[in-house]
Design a protein around this nucleic acid. Sequence first.
DNA 1: GATGAATGAGTCTTCATTCAT
DNA 2: AATGAATGAAGACTCATTCAT
Lengths: 208, 208, 208, 208
Amino acid sequence: MIVLAGDKRTVRQPRQKRAIEKKSRIIEAGFKLFCEKGFHNTNTVEIAKAAGVSTGILYNYFVDKKDIFLAAIDSFGNRITLPAFQATESLKSTFSLPEIVRWLIDSFIKSHDQFKSAHEEIRAMALLDPEVASAFNRFDLQTVNDVVKMMQRFGLNPPHPYEKAHIAVSLVENLCHEILYSRHEDLDYDIMIDEVARVIVQMLSVNP
Amino acid sequence: MIVLAGDKRTVRQPRQKRAIEKKSRIIEAGFKLFCEKGFHNTNTVEIAKAAGVSTGILYNYFVDKKDIFLAAIDSFGNRITLPAFQATESLKSTFSLPEIVRWLIDSFIKSHDQFKSAHEEIRAMALLDPEVASAFNRFDLQTVNDVVKMMQRFGLNPPHPYEKAHIAVSLVENLCHEILYSRHEDLDYDIMIDEVARVIVQMLSVNP
Amino acid sequence: MIVLAGDKRTVRQPRQKRAIEKKSRIIEAGFKLFCEKGFHNTNTVEIAKAAGVSTGILYNYFVDKKDIFLAAIDSFGNRITLPAFQATESLKSTFSLPEIVRWLIDSFIKSHDQFKSAHEEIRAMALLDPEVASAFNRFDLQTVNDVVKMMQRFGLNPPHPYEKAHIAVSLVENLCHEILYSRHEDLDYDIMIDEVARVIVQMLSVNP
Amino acid sequence: MIVLAGDKRTVRQPRQKRAIEKKSRIIEAGFKLFCEKGFHNTNTVEIAKAAGVSTGILYNYFVDKKDIFLAAIDSFGNRITLPAFQATESLKSTFSLPEIVRWLIDSFIKSHDQFKSAHEEIRAMALLDPEVASAFNRFDLQTVNDVVKMMQRFGLNPPHPYEKAHIAVSLVENLCHEILYSRHEDLDYDIMIDEVARVIVQMLSVNP
DNA sequence: GATGAATGAGTCTTCATTCAT
DNA sequence: AATGAATGAAGACTCATTCAT
């Protein structure tokens, strides 16, 4: 399994419960705003206001505005994908693999909706900023690891599981993006979902 | 074929040759800087300097900074992908489809490298800004149309050609991004390229 | 003679007359405020307002607030001491050396008054900031050079002229400071001035 | 002898031993930091941390940050100069006056080194702030008084002893500053020390 | 048409001081 | 008395846009 690299930022970690909650509120508020308006269009006053704190306190918990963004990325990664993968376990006995992949795609589309632009902006900023790149990679690896774990639960042992899992994740993410945001009127999204599910199942089903 | 939506911006179009060249130089310079540094990290003074014009003149040709970005997106779309697709024509008689797809992926990786962050940032901004979204869609459709044309040249007539072309394009774009920027050390990129080529060929080869 | 080291800051030097005047106005305004209120108690908005410009334009002429301070130090050095030294030339035939030194001290006290705290603050900041130290040294050297020149005009050729000139300058500067700002009620400043003049004359009069 | 003006601040004086120690620790920590980094570059959180107390408690002992600075000035004055003057007593029988003055200058140079910027910054701030001016004067007078006492111990009774002592102190302080911080490469500091010692001895040796 | 100096609102960040615990 | 998290006003600096020349 790919191991998440530890991040060694020199941020004072809050120990007290209230402080931890406040830090979470800031991440939450920042994340929500970054998703709605993007990093560059969100200012620190807004984040503080949304979190119900003063602007000054932001800098007790985070080294700068970008640090809030990074924390939000990590928080973001932990939330979207894992529940969906875990839920597949209970579906295993009832549904076929193509049905479950289709269900996963559907649930990803639903969960992506609440994160709006964050994912793309993270990708964009990752190209310019090593710290964002690192946070993005952590998130990415986690999802790929989750997919590989799910594959194992389903008895799928294709050659090169991580490479294939990565491709599968990309396919689903692009599909989500396309369906939620781009909306080309000439494309039939039901057909696209079917096709993506079919491609994934085929790719993962090749046992050695 | 999907038709490009008309552009309804109220920008004075330069008629004189010198003015047209100047506008091109601005787009060129802006595009280069946006690729290198991102939209938010590029300022208008830099663009003007790189284009060899005054900052004031920018606003004769463009309504604002974002308008330069939009023009750059349109210019961007016309340049990267088309040459690669056209080149496949001459390869048709000599190489097999899997070989040609693999060649296309390789040439996309090469051409993506020079555009760095532009593509991702456009996607990110497209989520927040309808005008950018519209420009992005124009670019996206063009690529999909190019792929469909190429499919026809190769005698590939699968059902739902646009949907499949879109999926294929997504796969290749994600692969480019992964290889050029993310570089997960645990992934074998040769295998990923092979696998993506295989998946695309398989998807497109299903004739009705 | 001690030579002033050239300073290689990367500030865009204004070439046009109006721009040079504006830069001067900013230095003037900054200098005045720094003298009145000190560097740390003067903000950029005040400087801009006093110079009759916008805050933004400050950064066309100076890299940062400190850079205005440095420019002010250089400007400061050129103005205070030189006129006084030059004026001694015309007094040479009429007055004796002790009388002229006494006259110089008096005129220094008068000219110091308009620069209030600048000199001390420069000395204080010079201890923490190499750039300020460098600017202070330039100013200091200039004064010492001026004193040595004056000594030569008066036919004074003591051994170690630069060391002695430096001591003389220090004595006068401290005297100015004491008289203008400290005002110990128990000290008789007429006597101090006489004593300082006597010490300087004695020190400089020792010909080899 | 010049009498120190009484201090009229409305600060609650700690009576308990532990509280007095705590106040001392704060002054100590503040003094050290002010010397190292200057008043404006030292913040109250740092002072509290260095003193091992909470930021809130600072305001039980001091009315504001400047008040810590004032207390530090008073503490500062008591420490640097007195030991050096006292030590001269034991040298009296063995060494000549010029030797002892030279020894004093040397020991001042050594002791100044540990106080870095404090002295200059106090002088600078004294020009802007009456309270700092008052604290500086107290310190200054003390040094002058110490010099006069030493003069008496050495049997020196020139006319205007306070004025001359003040001039002597200024000379030595400037010399310290020059040697420790300015370091003009073209000046020979051994010669300057000799010259300053010579001037001081000459000035103080004139008995009525 | 062309210039580029000028604007000033907007941004992130700091820090002396307070106050609920 | 003691804490240290919280405040929020104030600061330096940026930059898209304008306009006198």
